[in-house]
Design a protein around this nucleic acid. Structure first.
Length: 427
RNA sequence: GGAGACGUGGCCGAGUGGUCGAAGGCGGUUGACUCGAAAUCAACUGAGCGGCUUGCCUGCUCCUAGAGUUCGAAUCUCUACGUCUCCGCCA
């Protein structure tokens, strides 16, 4: 959500941005909003004047009553009553217009960063950089479920019976690997100065509607029957929700947080949920990073954030690349976004394992996350979020890249302490 | 789950129909004193939106939310939501 003042004063910036995002169909909205905003302020001004008059007359009635001047008091009452209908009508109009302006403003996308590549859809996303050699071994790399099964590490059949498709039992060393990766990811981020948090895994409806659009809510969130509670789709939901309607002290910034949570997603409309395996599932776990900072710092934090993920994967010998989201594929709330993709030696291509986003002030404006400042006045913070790692999907990359010719899986050095010192998993 | 209490500014807390946007305190900022923001004293210190004469100007809105009573509501009525305490249950 943009500042309406930006639209009032420099509508061309907003129009230009719409064109860059290939949303020409929204261009008429700009003038519509400007006109509605003008009407809205006009109604507001008139209503304010009437309310002001009512307030002062009412005060005088009090004074007159105290002095026992009955006639003066009655005269005042009559005057207020006379303007009551006009005020009531104006207030209805005021409400109607301001809701309309807000609704339409919600549809206007955030101004994208000047560095975002222009493109229509995900086919035009741009590879930024590769890290590590995307090697293809001489032997054939099996499907990840087969690798897991070779260690008796997964039971999808039972999960289907108990919970349906899109769920899994991880067992033995594979389950241990899953937990180890999360623990390592947690410590990795703590070592980089982030504060570790475990947030609520369920949140109330008003928080949900604050942090996502209605469509997302319908397609992603599981609701607890009979309660106003939803299972979180990512810890970002509860981590950002924590700051709704708060005014932060400037010197408390930046907030650099890393959070763990299970994540629950309905994945309505997403294809591939039926795919056998743990690529797209209803339940997974994730180590996340969240930054709340001053506007001038968010661009730097964006780079730092995705580099953390790159470094994390590289420390586990997994080749990755960064793929920048082009203008047309960028969600409306985002200023800039980059995916971290891991190399799949089996598919001989990269696949998404993390997503780093700079939301600018858009999220903060929606949620009322402000920073206290006497001179400049309070302002909206910038918010960013990024995945450290999200197993079990991450395990696909891990197993494929660390698989040896004999079917064993090497455990990279940093992970060994979390795996009881094992150097590898033997079949 | 049963019973009761309560929801006021960054925090604590007063306020039961009329200069109440709200006493007092804590915290914060600034100034004085000082070698020194240790102590003391003084002043200032909620948020949002609008107007113009852009001023330390002015108007409106906000005391959980919504509806109602009234000339006028933080204060009265209703509803919803939330929180706390005790009991029960439980890792």
């Amino acid at each position: 959500m943009l500042d309406i003042k930006l639209l009032r004063t420099t509508p061309d910036i907003v129009r230009e941005n719409l064109k860059k995002k290939f949303q020409e169909h929204k261009l008429p909205l700009v003038d519509e909003i400007i006109e509605l905003d003008r009407q809205s302020r006009d109604a507001r001004t008139k209503a304010d004047a009437l309310r002001g008059r009512r307030n002062s007359v009412s005060k005088n009635i009090g004074v007159a009553m105290a002095k026992g001047l009955k006639d003066d008091a009655e005269k005042g009452k009559a005057e207020v009553e006379a303007m009551a209908q006009e005020l009531a009508d104006l207030e209805v109009l005021e409400e109607k217009l301001s809701v309309l302006v807000r609704e339409k403003m919600m549809i206007i996308p955030n101004i994208i960063d000047s560095s975002v590549p222009i493109g229509k859809d995900d086919s035009e996303n741009v590879e930024v950089e590769r890290f590590g050699e995307p090697a293809v071994p001489s032997f054939e790399v099996p499907y990840h479920v087969d690798i897991m099964e070779s260690f008796n590490g997964i039971d999808l059949d039972s999960a289907r019976k108990t919970s349906g498709s899109g769920f899994y039992y991880l067992c033995g060393d594979i389950a241990r690997l899953h937990s180890s990766i999360l623990s390592y990811a947690r410590d990795f981020m703590i070592n980089r100065g982030f504060t570790y948090c475990i947030p609520p895994f369920m949140i109330r409806g008003d928080v949900v509607s604050g942090v996502m659009s209605f469509a997302e809510m319908e397609n992603m969130m599981y609701k607890i029957e009979g309660e106003d509670l939803y299972l979180i789709g990512t810890s970002e939901h509860s981590m950002i929700g924590r700051f709704i309607d708060t005014i932060l002290e400037e010197d408390a910034l930046p907030l650099t947080l890393t959070s763990y949570s299970p994540c629950f997603r309905k994945e309505v409309g997403a294809h591939g949920i039926e795919e056998r395996g743990v690529y797209r599932i209803h339940q997974f776990e994730k180590q996340e990073m969240i930054v709340v900072c001053k506007p001038e710092d968010s661009a730097d934090w964006f780079v730092k954030l995705y580099k953390n993920t790159v470094d994390f994967f590289r420390s586990l010998d997994i080749p990755v690349r960064t793929l920048e989201c082009c203008s047309g594929d960028l969600a409306d709330l985002k200023v800039k976004s980059i995916d971290v993709e891991a190399w799949s030696p089996r598919q001989k291509k990269y696949f998404e394992v993390g997503s780093c986003s700079n939301l600018g002030e858009a999220q903060a404006r929606r949620l009322g996350i402000r920073v206290k400042n006497k001179e400049k006045g309070n302002y909206f913070a910038h918010t960013l979020n990024n995945t450290v790692t999200a197993p079990p999907r991450m395990l696909i990359a891990f197993l494929e890249n660390n698989l040896q010719a004999d079917g064993s899986v090497a455990i990279p050095e940093p992970l060994r302490p979390y795996m009881g010192g094992q150097k590898g998993l033997l079949v």
